[in-house]
Design a binder for these strands. Sequence first.
DNA 1: GCACAGGTAGATT
DNA 2: AATCTACCTGTG
Length: 307
Amino acid sequence: MIIWSDWKPLRLRSPVSGAVLAEILDGGQAFRWLCGSDGVWTGAWAGNVVRLRPSPANGLQWSAPSAAAAAAQTELERYLDADGDADGLADTLPWRSDGHLARCLAAYPGLRLLRQPIGETLLCFLCSATKRIVQIKQMVARLAANHGASLRFEEPDGPPRETDGRSPRPLFQRLPTWEELGRVPEAELRECGLGFRARHVHRTAQFLAERPGWLEATEAAPYGEARERLRSLPGVGEKIADCVLLFGAGRLEAFPVDVWILRAMAGHYGLRGWKPGQIAQFGRAHFGPLAGLAQQYLFAWERRRRS
DNA sequence: GCACAGGTAGATT
DNA sequence: AATCTACCTGTG
């Protein structure tokens, strides 16, 4: 039984509607947010579990297990890049000369890139190959349930306040660290539904478990070097490397090219038949140093009304 | 029942 | 240096 702190307002420099919040939390950047029938999002990253809900006038409210609430606000503000000027960044994209981009920006005001832990982001995107978001979330939930450390929020004595017996239990286990994954046999990863991705996760874990600090050094390296380092991991190609840098390291110049971006660039930019590598090159040249932010808008637009 | 899904790596042209 | 192809498994 979790005792949640009271709801408190969360100030975002660029506010978001409920719909844009849903796109940020559940649009393919992160895979550990669940939305209840009451419209409340519950999500987890690192050792944090947090609830979020839209409030009037594009406001946001948050709540955390009361024992962890003090630290949670700081962590959440960093995770959501609350102080970041998301709309100001978007305004520097070349929308004035790009009608389709202008339309995408207008459709998702306040859309932003999350600042997730790089290790978790790598794990999630190793699971993402030829899978839909629902399935990725399922695999990741099983990894946490079977191999992640439990999160215990000890409650001090006192009158219980707001409780929620239906809290999504899987979120109260962390994702396993790479060191922990290094001790998990590939067969047990397959039991989490990873399929052929289990081999990639297993071999990447073998590599990383022996090299403490390797991911942190990668995060600190210049973009090109970081990308090559990630590419050297089993199961990490150009697309996943860019996803990890964009969603897990705040590298807004990373421009992941997936099937949705291929469709977007074919349909709206006349680049039918172009290869992913060519699209990536075009994207960085056309959209500039924040190409990854543009990518997120194009991705959201392309994916609307689909699963 | 069966194609297909936020790809990657290795073989084959 | 391009272009196939196998790889697991749940969903539509």
